[in-house]
Design a protein around this nucleic acid. Structure first.
Length: 422
RNA sequence: GGAGAGGUGGCUGAGCGGCUUAAAGCGCUCCCCUGCUAAGGGAGUAUACCUCCAACGAGGUAUCGAGGGUUCGAAUCCCUCCCUCUCCGCCA
């Protein structure tokens, strides 16, 4: 969420952000400000009353101590009367506070000035392209190859769990494991700290990174224990430092974490879900950064470059999109998407999304640092995939296949796989 | 899962209805003192929010695991939940 004081001081900028991100209703800003004003008034009134009541209560204590019970009784009468009023105001404050927070949570993050204004994916800017998209039509889509070699078993996945929960078998499993190792090792070489995280999170964590109240439907829920299965490692890893005040010397924080990710993906169909394109469970290596505000945009560029470096090392043609305001999502202030070329499907597949959230997540989870001895400031959070596994697996299978159906092992994976062909 | 003991500031730890403005110690910061060091003396040392102020800052409210309740008044009493430790059970 945005800082209420920022909204107060820059309402026009916030309204523009709402419009640019494709929301209709900008009246929410003024509504929030008026609720906030009312809330402040009530809080002040409640605090003042409580202050009076506290003073009187300690007076009672004093009188009781001296044995002046009658005088004490007088004051008890007064405070009893105040009690009702305080209770009433507290309830009003609580209601206003909930209203205020609800409105505040509906206001999207403000895009960075360098972000192109636009409505749909058509308006995204191609920031960079690398390699030549392979137009050879003989290349088969990955699902033909995996079926032929038995590397992925979709049918048994359906039997055991359901659609979107495949088994990886033999070299298929080995390829994926090699990629995970390669990605993590590279990140560690780049200065990230390796983390292994819980796969379930509680409600506070889901709220911290913004999955609830907004995107509840994307997650699987374990109601009996109050847990959510993680849709991305971003959730546990960013929440790792929730409600903390970090020291300057601890920054920047850079984590790499591999987890499975679970997404309900309600309403998906067709070629989007064919093969490995979209699954309910998939593996991902995630990069998370927690940095000082003044560093966050440099850190976003290095995050993007790190993710791009993985694709380059795998020699997979890709392009990087700078997402426009309308296509970038509610919580981001700037976002790059990396898309790998799938020669078997002749289309681009998103394999990474690198975002700067500025203080939008950190504010909600009270993630701060001590800037000066007496000055505490909200940190900036970033994350990016480095990388999402299944689509990389498909791109590798499709790009490294030979006409006889065999698939070569990418050079950088050979140390992990130990042979030239899968 | 069962039984018991607990959860207090950066840490250790006292307090178990009003003389607490959360004692004391440790740590940390600043100052003083002794030529340096050791020791000693003094002051300060949480977070969120609200109000006032141009600012430095001042005042207020809340927070003793979390949430409810009792009371004029709760760290202290009651209820629910969470977590930690010890023992038992189960187990990779």
């Amino acid at each position: 969420m945005l800082d209420i004081n920022f909204i107060k001081e820059n309402p026009a900028q916030v309204e523009k952000a709402i419009r640019d991100k494709g929301e209709e209703d900008i009246s929410i800003v003024q509504k929030l400000l008026s609720v906030d004003e009312e809330w402040r008034t009530k809080v002040h009134k409640g605090d003042t009353l409580r202050s009076e009541s506290n003073t009187k209560s300690s007076k009672i204590g004093e009188l009781m101590g001296k044995g002046e019970k009658e005088k004490a009784q007088e004051i008890i009468k007064e405070t009893s009367a105040m009690k009702e009023e305080i209770k009433k105001i507290d309830e009003e404050v609580k209601a206003l506070q909930e209203e205020r927070e609800k409105l505040q949570l509906r206001i999207p993050n403000v895009p960075h000035p360098s972000v192109p204004v636009g409505a749909t994916e058509e308006d995204n800017e191609v920031f960079k392209t690398w390699g030549e998209p392979d137009q050879n039509e003989w290349r088969k889509p990955h699902w033909d190859l995996t079926e032929r070699h038995g590397w992925i078993d979709f049918e048994r996945g359906v039997k055991v769990t359901g659609a979107g929960f495949p088994f990886y078998v033999g070299a298929g499993a080995q390829l994926q494991r090699a990629l995970i190792n390669y990605f993590i090792n590279t990140a560690v070489d780049n200065g990230y700290t390796e983390l292994q995280a819980p796969y379930f999170v509680n409600e506070d964590s889901a709220r911290g990174t913004g999955q609830i109240p907004d995107k509840e439907d994307m997650m699987y829920v374990i109601p009996r224990d109050g847990f959510f299965t993680i849709p991305t490692a971003e959730v546990p890893v960013t929440n790792f430092h929730r409600d903390e005040i970090l020291e300057k010397g601890e920054l920047p924080i850079r984590y790499v974490c591999h987890t499975p990710c679970w997404r309900r993906e309600a309403g998906s169909y067709g070629k989007d879900v064919r093969g490995l394109n979209r699954l309910h469970q998939f593996d991902k290596v995630e990069l998370v950064k927690i940095v000082k505000p003044e560093d966050s945009y440099d850190e976003l560029e290095s995050l993007r470059e790190h993710a791009e470096g993985l694709l380059e090392a795998l020699e997979l043609p890709y392009r990087t999109l700078l997402m426009c305001t309308g296509d970038m999502g509610f919580t981001q202030s700037k976002k790059y998407d990396l898309e790998v070329w799938s020669p078997g499907q002749q289309r681009w597949l998103e394999v990474s999304s690198c975002s700067n959230f500025e203080g939008f997540q950190a504010r909600r989870m009270q993630l701060r640092y001590r800037k000066e001895e007496k000055q505490i400031e909200i940190l900036h959070t970033l994350n990016g995939s480095g990388l999402a596994l299944p689509r990389i697996v498909s791109a590798i299978l499709e790009a490294y296949q030979e006409e006889n159906g065999k698939v070569r092992v990418p050079e950088v994976l050979k140390p992990f796989i130990g042979r030239d062909y899968l």
